[in-house]
Design a protein around this nucleic acid. Structure first.
Lengths: 194, 194
DNA sequence: ACCTGAACACCGTTCAAGT
DNA sequence: ACCTGAACACCGTTCAAGT
C-alpha cells in the first residue's frame, strides 16, 4: 500500500494556527512566540514569513475572505434554491460556534478594529463587502424589482443580524441561542425562509 | 461667584479611563502603564486599587451594567411609550458609535471572551441578562398574551441584532450604516416601530 | 491608606550571524 | 532560502519599602 505523507510548509502551518487562535481569542492574543512553539521554530523565524504581526493578520483575513468567496461561489442563487443557499450560508457561522465556540474571524477583528494595523483593517472590510454583495444578489433574485440601494440595506441588515447572533450566542456559549435567534429573524421576515 | 472644584478620586479616574479604552480598543489594550500615565501615578499603584487586570475588567463591566440598568429603569414600558423607550434604548448604542466609533463595552468584551478571566466573563453575562430582561418586559407589554419563552427569544434576537448592527457599523466607521440597519429591522417587524 | 522602585517572565521587533 | 540568539522597549505582576 502506498503511504501518503502530507507535507504542510511552515508558512501554511503558521496561517492555520493563526486562524484558529484569532477565531477563538482575537488578534491581540496572536503571539509569535506561541505560534513558533507550535510550529517548532523560533519566534524570530516567523518574521521571515510575515515581517510584522500586521502582515500575518492581513494574510489571515485575506485568506479567510478568499475562502468565504470560494464557498459563496458554489451556492446557487436561483430563486428555487435561495432558501437552501441561505441555510448553508448561516450554517457556516453556526459551524464556527460549534468549533469550540469560535467566531467569524472578521467579526472578532471588527471588534478589535481600533487596535488593528491599517493593512488588516482593509482586509476585514473586504470580508464585509464580499458577504454583503452576495446577500444583495440573493435578495435581488428573491424579491426582484427593488432598487439596488434597498437591496443593499437589507443585505447589510442581514449580515449585521447574523454577526450579532453569533456574537451573543458566543457570549452564552450556547448554540441553541444562535438557532433561536436566526429562527426569530426568519419569523420576522428579515431574511428569506428556508 | 462660587468656584466649583470637582475632585475625582484615583479609583474613579482609573475606571473612567479604563471604560474609554475598553470601549474603543478592548480588554487587551487596557494597559496598567498607560492608565498610570494618564492618572499621574506609577503602574504598580494601580494594583493597590485593582489587584489584577481581571479585577479592573470586572469592575468596568459591573459599573457599565449598573449604569445601563439605571437608565433602563427611567424608561417607561407603558404600551403608549414603548416606541419612544425603544428609541432611547437604541440611541444609547448609537451614541457609543458617535463617540469616536466606540462600542458597547460588553459587546467588545464578548468578542474577547476566551481571553477574559472568569470574573470578567460573569459580569459581561450579567449585562446581556439585564438587557434581555428589559426587552422581554417591553415586548410583553407590546404584544400581550405570548409565552415567556417566545418573548425571551425575541428579546435575545433584538439584542443580538442591535449588537450586530453596532459591530458592523463600527467596522465601516459609518453611523448611517447603523441607522439604515435599525430601520431595516423595524421595517421587517423584528422590533416595535417608533 | 496610598504610592514607589526594582525585579520577574512575558511580548513584538530588529539584526547580525549562521547553514 | 530559512532559521537562530541576543538585544531592545514593551507588558502585568509581585513585593519590600517608603510616607
Amino acid at each position: 500500500m502506498e503511504q501518503k505523507t502530507v507535507i504542510i510548509d511552515t508558512k501554511e502551518q503558521i496561517l492555520a494556527i493563526g486562524r484558529s487562535v484569532v477565531q477563538s481569542q482575537g488578534y491581540n492574543a496572536l503571539s509569535f512566540r506561541d505560534i513558533a512553539k507550535a510550529v517548532g521554530i523560533k519566534s524570530a523565524s516567523i518574521h521571515y514569513h510575515f515581517p510584522t504581526k500586521g502582515d500575518l493578520g492581513a494574510a489571515l483575513a485575506r485568506r479567510y475572505t478568499d475562502d468565504a468567496r470560494a464557498l459563496l461561489d458554489t451556492l446557487s442563487i436561483e430563486p428555487a434554491d435561495i432558501g437552501a443557499s441561505l441555510d448553508t450560508y448561516i450554517a457556516v457561522f453556526r459551524a464556527a460556534l460549534a468549533n469550540e465556540n469560535r467566531m467569524c474571524l472578521c467579526g472578532i477583528l471588527i471588534a478589535e478594529r481600533d487596535e488593528l494595523p491599517d493593512i488588516v483593517r482593509a482586509e476585514v472590510d473586504r470580508f464585509t463587502d464580499v458577504n454583503v454583495a452576495w446577500l444583495q444578489t440573493l435578495l435581488g433574485r428573491w424579491t426582484p424589482g427593488r432598487s439596488a440601494e434597498d437591496l443593499h440595506q437589507q443585505a447589510v441588515a442581514i449580515f449585521s443580524a447574523i454577526e450579532g447572533a453569533q456574537l451573543v450566542a458566543r457570549g452564552r456559549a450556547d448554540l441553541a441561542v444562535f438557532d433561536a435567534t436566526i429562527a426569530a429573524y426568519r419569523a420576522a421576515g428579515l431574511m428569506p425562509p428556508r
